[in-house]
Structures are given as structure tokens and as C-alpha cells.
Design a protein around this nucleic acid. Structure first.
Lengths: 207, 207
DNA sequence: CGGAAGCGTTTAGTATTCTAGACAAATGGC
DNA sequence: GCCATTTGTCTAGAATACTAAACGCTTCCG
């Protein structure tokens, strides 16, 4: 009988009513999603709480799935990144198929006098726009961690590039490249003593 | 810190923290969305509440934006349709310009022996293109075997249809149907002595 | 070794959501 | 008309989310 069941005492996971998306969606729970996203942005619970206008305790409880936040609260929390609830729920945390490519992995498209070397193994379903960028020593895009819909990639031409994507940091040198979902927080920095030149590409619907 | 601000008394709209989606998304509030979606499904508050496992009062309060439902509650409510939260938030509620079309309103696309009458005036933004087709005796789409990406299907309403798909020929009579990949070469012909009428659909729209 | 600062967690108390039930208005037989 | 049903709304109380403040832990300096 369903009679008088009692909710578990405090301290028990609530996780209730969220666990069977019916479809084989297999997406992580809200708490785990939030925690991973927060760490990708390199924020502590308190930092995020301050930005969002909630208390750190709330962040903690949500991340543990001890409470099911209200739409309003979740919106406030996500505004700290910022990110919409829909993007939050549909963002793909796991696959991250491939982010970094070594120089030798770039595929040569055109040969001879002109050399076009393709970033990524498969361009299908990728609509990209390229740019040429130069970073002076110490230059930094800041830890603002801009996030816009789309994808972006690039190749380091000369110098050294320190690239942070979703909490993962990597030093790239001439010939190395990157490719990631622009919604993941990212940061470019030139940690070297000479200019860093890269060719990058991104996809807003700008062309 | 925001010191001691007080939430509005009961009975005042809460609508808090949800009103600036930052992007020019201009999406309706949660309550209005839910109400419209519910009515689109032809459900009363109580019916939906019963399906969702919540009370009708909750539905009412949410639709009036008097409360900001928890993720768990909203999920339960949407399960009554069913629909995911992400889909719910991104759903386009803009007035579908037209829903119903009278027979005379179907736009004639082809003339002569073959008549194609399109459901809806504009296929842009629609995933499916449906047509009411009529073939006079002997009418034939020709053996050019056009092929376009997508899929198409249909049901024979009256008369006889000789359908050729990828080299396979078949005679279909009223009630019979077909479904094939549009990339396969195909041909329609009326081998009978009376008109052949069919209703077809294909995706994506090719005109 | 302090001890100050930062971290995530937990707790007591308050604010909010949610339920159960009642209410008035609208609808549909008969 | 009149009763029965259905509708959306509202209210008191139970259940839950959220805040403010504390706790234990680690790290980093002097």
C-alpha cells in the first residue's frame, strides 16, 4: 500500500520524480550536472553562490541532490555562468569526443604550393569560420569564460598557447590544434616570451 | 548583500528571477507556457494533475505564476503530456499561422494530368510536406526517376496506382500505402481507367 | 607551530511550495 | 427550472526549499 509512506529523514537523497525520463536519455541528474559545470568554470560553491545571489549551502544541497530546486532558483544559479536552463539540461557533458589534436594528426586537404590542413578528423556537420589571431606575451582573454552557442577551433602558428577548456588546461605549441563546443567555458593565454600566433575558427551564424 | 527584502505577500505574482532570458528570446513565462500547452492537449487542470500525480491546485498556481515550481514538480507535471523540461522551455508557442485548411484552399502545384495540391501555403519551417494528388488515367510522372534526400509515404484513396521504387514495381489499390527513401529512384503512374487519388507526405519539403 | 583563509558540508529556522478540501461560476442533461 | 458535473480558483496546514551560521577539513604563510 502506498498509505502513509514518509519521506526519508533529512540527509537522504530526494532524487524523486526525476529519475525516469522514459526515453533512454540517460542524462546525469541535476546535481551532478551542476557540479561538473561549476568545476568546468573553475568556481567554488561560494563564488557561484555570490554571483547567483543564493547561499553556498543551497549550491551544496542541489549538487548532492538533497533538494529539487525551484525553477526560479535554478535559473538564478545558472545565471551565474550564465547559461539557460534548456542549455543546462541538454548540454552534453560526457562524450567530448575529441578536443586536442597533435600537429601530426591534422589532415592535409590541399597539397603542393598551397597547404590546407584540416582540424579534426571529420568535418561533417561542422560549419566553421576561421580567423587569424596574435597574442603578445602574457596576453589573456581573462577568466570570464565566455560561452556562446556554436563550436570553435584553431591552430597555433608560432609561440605557445595555454588553453583552458572546461577545466582542462593544456599547453599547445606550433602545429598543435584544438576543437571544442563553445558552450564550454574557455580561456586563451600566452604564457611565453614571444608572440603567439594562431589561426582559429568559430561558428556563430555570422556568415 | 540584498539585506532584508521581503517577498510579496501571498496572492502576488512571484515571477521572480525568470524574466530576463538575456538573449532576445522573448519566451513566455512558465505559467503561460504550461497553460497553453495544456489547452493544446485538450486537458483540464484536474485531468493533467491526475496524470502527473499532483493536485489541480498546483497546476492552477503554476499557471498563474503564483509559485515557481521545483524542478521535480515541473518534471512530474510535464510527464503528464509527456514532454521534457528542455523541450518545454524551448517549445515554440508562436501562433502556427494556420492549422486548418479547406479543400479549396490547397494550393495547386502541378496542372494537367497530374494534380498536386499542397496542404498549407508555405512549407518553410515545416518538417513535413503533405499533398493531395490526383492522376488521370494514364497519367505518369515520367521515368526520369527523380531522387531527392528525405523520405516519403502515402495512401491510395481511390483508383489504382502503379508505383516503381528502385526497380521494384507494384500495383496499389485503395487503402494500400507506401513508404520509401526519396533517394531511391521512383515513378508514379495510373494504369487504370478512372482517376487515381492518393494522399502523400514527404520530408523535408522539396519545393 | 599558530592561524587565517578557503573549501564543502551540515543544521536550525524561515520562506516557499504543495496538498487536501471547499467555493463559485459555467455547462449539460432531463 | 433544477440537479449533477466540470471547471478554475482560493485557503489552511503539511511538506519542502532556502538562508544564515556554524562545523570540520585542507592549504598556505609567517
Amino acid at each position: 500500500m502506498a498509505g502513509d509512506f514518509r519521506r526519508a529523514h533529512r540527509s537522504a537523497p530526494v532524487a524523486d520524480g526525476m529519475e525516469k525520463p522514459e526515453g533512454g536519455e540517460a542524462s546525469p541528474d541535476i546535481g551532478t550536472r551542476l557540479r561538473e559545470l561549476r568545476k568546468m568554470h573553475g568556481l567554488s560553491q561560494r563564488e557561484l553562490a555570490k554571483r547567483a545571489g543564493v547561499t553556498n549551502g543551497t549550491i551544496s544541497l542541489i549538487e548532492q541532490n538533497r533538494i529539487s530546486p525551484s525553477i526560479g532558483s535554478l535559473k538564478k544559479v545558472l545565471d551565474g555562468f550564465p547559461m539557460s536552463i534548456a542549455d543546462f539540461l541538454t548540454l552534453d557533458l560526457k562524450p567530448r569526443s575529441r578536443v586536442f589534436y597533435e600537429a601530426k594528426e591534422l589532415r592535409e586537404i590541399a597539397g603542393g604550393d598551397v597547404s590546407f590542413r584540416l582540424v579534426g578528423r571529420d568535418t561533417r556537420g561542422r560549419a566553421i569560420q576561421m580567423m587569424h589571431e596574435r597574442y603578445t606575451p602574457g596576453a589573456d582573454t581573462g577568466d570570464e569564460m565566455l560561452s556562446h552557442a556554436g563550436e570553435e577551433c584553431g591552430i597555433v602558428i608560432s609561440g605557445v598557447l595555454e588553453l583552458t577548456v572546461g577545466g582542462e588546461v593544456r599547453r599547445l605549441v606550433a602545429g598543435d590544434a584544438y576543437y571544442f563546443d563553445s558552450r564550454l567555458p574557455h580561456r586563451f593565454r600566452n604564457p611565453g616570451t614571444i608572440d603567439c600566433v594562431i589561426v582559429s575558427a568559430c561558428t556563430p551564424p555570422s556568415f
